[in-house]
């Protein structure tokens, strides 16, 4: 006997993501789901961002890693609440894992919550966690063809940060190619070139972040 089901496979995840989203709405948190390959510079970006927004915007971070609390330790040094989720074998954070971290954060005291996903260009793009935007980092040491190889993440992201541009001269990475490839997959994607080492482009990134926070809260911070 055949029975009709017609049910989205990730509906359980999406339902929890919606609950997270409603909570973030209530608490006026701008939430970003930050994704990249391992070693592209997610934690470095958060460190540099913390320095630049200190006293203006209050950050909070949920970090996903397969093992260790090193990233949360790095971020914690900036007096930012950081919750580490060790995912064991899971290659991504899902809505339920993020929900489990929320009781440990004082969301009322956070303007921007960054969910630093597990380093991986494939799986994290599949699971919404309740974020306002997915954003991603592509570093120049990875290669400019990555948007074509891993299209879903580039398609889903509102912003692509191209990191490590201070290393451009040592690689065959073409900024022009990388931009063209990403825009082909996602014509609406914003692109900012940065270096977390020498600080290039970080002011532009902070402007992007500030503008998105303003859009979400109507300029009314709750500091």
């Amino acid at each position: 006997m055949k029975i009709n089901v017609m049910q989205d496979v990730l509906q359980a995840n999406d339902r929890i993501a919606e609950e997270n989203r409603q909570l973030f709405e209530e608490k006026h948190n701008l939430v970003l789901n930050l994704m990249s390959s391992p070693g592209a510079g997610k934690t470095s970006l958060l460190e540099r961002t913390a320095e630049r927004v200190a006293g203006k915007l209050r950050l909070g971070v949920i970090v996903g890693d397969i093992e260790t609390t090193r990233d949360a330790d790095r971020i914690g040094k900036f007096n930012i609440p950081a919750i580490q989720l060790t995912t064991g074998t899971a290659c991504h954070l899902d809505a339920n894992m993020v929900a489990s971290a929320l009781p440990h954060l004082k969301l009322d005291n956070i303007d921007i919550l960054v969910v630093e996903n597990v380093g991986n260009l494939v799986c994290p793009a599949e699971f919404i966690v309740g974020e306002d935007y997915k954003i991603m980092i592509l570093s120049v040491t990875e290669g400019d063809e990555k948007p074509l190889k891993y299209p879903l993440m580039f398609r889903e992201s509102a912003l692509m940060l191209i990191n490590k541009i201070d290393l451009l001269q040592y690689t065959n990475f073409s900024l022009k190619e990388a931009r063209a490839n990403a825009l082909k997959i996602n014509p609406d994607i914003d692109i900012i070139e940065i270096s977390c080492t020498n600080g290039a482009g970080l002011d532009e990134w902070v402007s992007w972040l500030t503008a998105k926070h303003r859009d979400k809260t109507g300029g009314a911070g709750h500091a």
Partner: peptide, 11 residues
Amino acid sequence: TELSIKDIEIE
């Protein structure tokens, strides 16, 4: 972009 179960067959 879809990912869903259409139907199942049971006994």
